[in-house]
């Protein structure tokens, strides 16, 4: 019983950490490929948190599993679009990063 709780807590803590690491990398790292990876790491963090909710005290809840499958497909699609756009940005500007001087902020 204690071990079950512990596994759940490790999952939750790791999920939160992955999410935060992703946020940090997304903001700080300049290369677009790293940014797309960061978005995926954030997503994994959310999915870990969601999955922990599935292990209830007596019944296994199937809904979070379904949500995570849906979420994964959506994440794959968003990543594919982001990567296609990244290649296009590189072809147009010569580099796979956002220009550092944002127009106004």
């Amino acid at each position: 019983m204690i071990t079950e709780n512990l596994v759940g807590e490790i999952y939750l803590v790791c999920g939160a950490l992955l999410f935060v690491l992703g946020v940090h990398a997304l903001v700080v790292r300049p290369h677009l490929l790293v940014k797309v990876l960061a978005v995926n790491i954030m997503g994994s963090g959310v999915f870990m948190v969601l999955l922990t909710a599935a292990s209830g005290p007596d019944l296994i809840d199937p809904v979070p599993h379904a949500l995570v499958i849906t979420g994964i497909v959506v994440a794959v699609c968003a990543s594919a679009v982001a990567l296609a756009l990244m290649l296009k940005v590189r072809a147009a500007t010569g580099q796979a990063r956002l220009p550092s001087e944002a127009p106004e902020d």
């Binding site: 997304l26 756009l85 990244m86 940005v89 147009a92 500007t93």
Partner: peptide, 10 residues
């Protein structure tokens, strides 16, 4: 436009 849409997407 591409840089703007990339920024918007991220």
């Amino acid at each position: 436009a591409l840089v703007a849409s990339m920024r918007y997407l991220l």
